[in-house]
Every structure is written in C-alpha cells, then in structure tokens.
C-alpha cells in the first residue's frame, strides 16, 4: 500500500514539474497576465492596449518546487517505511 502511494506521489511530483514546464516556466507564481491587443486609437493609429487579466501561471520557486519537493519527499518517506517494515 505504502509503495503504491509512494509511486503516486512520485508521479504527481513529476506531473507538477511537467505542468510548470508547459506553463511558461515562470520563476514566481503569476497571478495576472498582461494581455496585449491591438486597437485603433482616436488618432487613427493601431496601438497596443495592455491590460492585466486574472490568469494564473505556476511559478518554480513558490509553487512547483515546494509542491513537487513535498510530494517526492513524502514518496521517499513512504518507500523508506515500506523497506523498514520488510526487514
């Protein structure tokens, strides 16, 4: 049982890191994202309109690393306990 949970923890840890890698690889959690759209201003020119929208991106230092570290650590403890129980 412990071994199964440990494997699930390792898979989840890898999943968190994989998600971070696919989600822009931000160093810190990004709670808002700068959305840029081209709009025509009153001068008749196409200008960038930049606005912050609520869009979360996982950061490495304050999101992915602590979460995957905790999961991997838990997995390692469970494996250790499993091995100790067998001996």
């Amino acid at each position: 049982m412990k071994k199964t949970i440990a494997i699930v923890c390792f898979i989840l840890a890898a999943g968190v890191m994989g998600y971070w890698a696919m989600d822009g690889q931000h160093m810190a959690n990004q709670f808002k994202t700068l959305k840029v759209t081209m709009v025509e201003d009153d001068f008749g020119d196409k200008e960038e309109k930049k606005e912050w929208i609520e869009e979360f991106h996982l950061g490495l230092m304050d999101g992915a690393l602590p979460a995957s570290g905790a999961l991997a650590g838990l997995g390692a403890v469970l494996i250790f306990l499993e091995m100790r129980g067998k001996t």
């Binding site: 810190a28 990004q30 709670f31 808002k32 700068l34 912050w52 950061g59 304050d62």
Partner: peptide, 8 residues
C-alpha cells in the same frame, strides 16, 4: 508598478 505578482 505592477508585474502580475503582488509579492514581486
């Protein structure tokens, strides 16, 4: 000034 992360 804003960066999308209040701590930053």
């Amino acid at each position: 000034m804003k960066t999308g992360n209040p701590i930053r």
